[in-house]
Amino acid sequence: MNVVENLDKVTNHLLTLLDGPLPSEDNRDSFLEEIDKVLQVRDSLLQRLAPPFSETEMALGKKVALASQQVTPKLESFHKQLKQEWAQIQQSKKTAKAYGQAYSSPTADGMYYDKRN
């Protein structure tokens, strides 16, 4: 197989991975590792891509270019979902910490809590 055919195969595999929803937290690490591996392979194929191209390679290249336009928004969507989940985790940690240390800071209404109970 030449580089363009490999690139088409890898791009289609990447689109297949990205078409589904973001997996649960248990399977997420392996899913993200798989996407990273496919992106690295795809990047190496893109770097090896060099003219001249035959007619079939040109047609396949156009197909790959169209598929590549679909990859970026899907990756951005996954990135946005992961970023939102990370923000929620950080907020819940902050809330839990504030709840656990409720009496350590001064109160807003000026009341005093006696810690010697």
Rank of each mutant, 00 (worst) to 15 (best):
Q84F: 07
R48V: 00
L45C: 08
L22M: 14
Q81M: 04
T72L: 14
Q70N: 14
L14H: 05
N6W: 02
W86G: 02
L7E: 08
S24V: 13
S68I: 00
S77D: 09
S68F: 00
D19T: 10
D36Y: 03
S92T: 13
E76K: 15
S24I: 11
M1N: 09
D114I: 03
T107S: 10
S68A: 07
R28C: 04
A102Y: 05
E33R: 14
Q47C: 03
S24D: 15
S68C: 02
A87T: 04
M58S: 07
M111W: 05
L49W: 08
T56V: 08
K115T: 09
G110P: 02
D43C: 01
S68M: 04
A67Y: 01
K74V: 02
A108G: 03
P51M: 06
A96N: 13
A59I: 07
E5V: 07
V41Q: 15
A67V: 00
T95D: 15
F53N: 03
P73A: 10
P21T: 05
P73C: 10
N27H: 07
E25K: 14
G110Q: 03
W86H: 13
M111K: 15
K37D: 12
L14G: 03
Y113N: 02
T95Y: 07
D29E: 15
F78P: 01
Q81G: 00
G110T: 03
P106H: 05
A59R: 13
T56W: 01
S54N: 11
G61Q: 03
S104Q: 12
T11C: 05
S77M: 08
L7N: 04
Q88L: 06
E25S: 14
A67Q: 14
Q88N: 10
H13M: 08
G20C: 02
L46G: 01
T72P: 00
K93M: 15
D8W: 08
A108E: 14
Q70V: 02
L39K: 06
L46W: 01
S24C: 12
P106E: 12
N2V: 07
K83A: 13
K74T: 02
I89W: 08
H13Q: 15
P23W: 10
E5K: 12
V41R: 12
E25L: 11
Q70L: 14
D29V: 07
L15W: 04
T16S: 12
G61V: 02
P23D: 09
Q90S: 12
V4L: 09
Y112M: 07
N12Q: 15
A102D: 05
L45R: 11
